[in-house]
Nucleic acid binder design. Structure first.
Lengths: 220, 220
DNA sequence: GACAAAGTGAACGGCTCCGTTCAATTAAAC
DNA sequence: GTTTAATTGAACGGAGCCGTTCACTTTGTC
């Protein structure tokens, strides 16, 4: 479904190697299925043979293409992070008052972060980061930091248009996102059920506090 | 070193069983070593034989006392959560202006949460919560929720003395803690190094924002 | 001292799974 | 058609580890 594996496949300069070329769709199928298993059941609890079976592929093919279980896991993580990159665009900015826009943004961010797949992905990456610090780094760059910088740029823009009064957009971005998340992502990481009624109140509270600190009304 | 295992050991009513009594210090040693291994290397990566060896105990003794690997893990989690309970007291409240007090509290909370053992414990519990939801629940009650309620009570007290203006202490408590943490606990969960310079700025920023929203100055 | 239960050490069965090897098959490039 | 390389199925070696059994020792209580 995704096209993550195309990053290192462009061998344009090399002469076309003779013989049967490796099946790209198979490779992608393996990565997709590996991601599914790794992020659902954890690294240790996932058997390569199972991935192979579910991807309709021989186990040997996996070892030929990736060489190692860890390498396959790394590929799956990289692919998933690549998908993440597409999720932070500033194109479709909501309209309305600054309060309405912040509310919409807060809702979007929370909805994005509280998807069950996201929670599980978070858990897995965190657990594996210990044995493979590079994995955590890749995720941080593809996800949280990217989101933070994008949002900070928007806040800076708002400051330039005079809708907000702030001198440290990065800090303000962190603060707003943290306010929106509250302790809810924590609760969810530890299995608590989602509480939609708290959701609204939390976002509204976040916007209130944020505007109290950075809104123009307070600084007149 | 800790005395967590004493919760279910009070068999006061039963007649003293004949024969050799089970060694409580051994039991505690097993739990301590189990916690060490489980939280450092993960559940799956921990071998019971290793725990037994490091605790100076036979593997059979572990199976006699706990019956199961999962049960041993659960005992270790329960013990660690018990330790957590002692860490949230409102006794030694700092003095000074409300700003100084909030700053001190924020620093204490962040210092407590960013201890490496805490980060690892967090990761492990989150990962195992999936297969054993009860574990996550136990942790939430012993840690985050407890801290939140305790701090909310303090905020309510501050509101009663007129130092703060707020009508939802629980929400405000969440907001303050979230502001203090920022995205730093996230970064640390994914292996990023600690940045002491950001630490100060983040706490100061949190107090600024919080007081802008809930301080008496803004509501006069 | 007799008894009963707890602890020990060693060995074992059984299971899962990683990673490899090998001969056979398939599919593209030339 | 020939060549080259990818893919496959099956089987294997080896490792790690869970949980059990058993005979034996230790350490308390009665």
């Amino acid at each position: 479904m995704s096209t993550c594996g195309s990053s290192a496949n462009n061998e344009c300069s090399g002469p076309r190697k003779a013989g049967r070329p490796s099946d790209v769709t198979k490779r992608q199928g393996i990565i997709d299925m590996a991601a599914r298993h790794f992020f659902e059941h954890g690294y240790a609890a996932t058997a390569i043979e199972q991935i192979a079976a579910d991807a309709g592929v021989s186990k040997v093919t996996i070892y030929n293409q990736f060489g190692d279980k860890r390498a396959l896991f790394a590929a799956a993580v990289a692919c998933e992070c690549e998908k993440l990159r597409g999720h932070f665009s500033l194109d479709a900015m909501p309209q309305g008052t600054i309060r309405e826009r912040l509310t919409a943004i807060g809702e979007a961010i929370c909805a994005f972060l509280s998807r069950p797949e996201m929670i599980q992905f978070d858990r897995r990456i965190a657990a594996e980061t210990e044995t493979e610090p590079a994995i955590g780094e890749v995720f941080l760059d593809a996800g949280p930091r990217r989101m933070k910088h994008g949002f900070a740029a928007y806040l800076r823009y708002c400051a330039e248009t005079g809708e907000l009064v702030l001198d440290d957009p990065e800090l303000a971005a962190e603060q707003f996102v943290s306010l929106c998340k509250g302790m809810d992502d924590l609760e969810r990481r530890f299995g608590a059920a989602v509480t939609p009624e708290n959701f609204e109140r939390r976002i509204a509270g976040a916007v209130d506090v944020f505007l109290a600190a950075y809104g123009v009304a307070c600084h007149r």
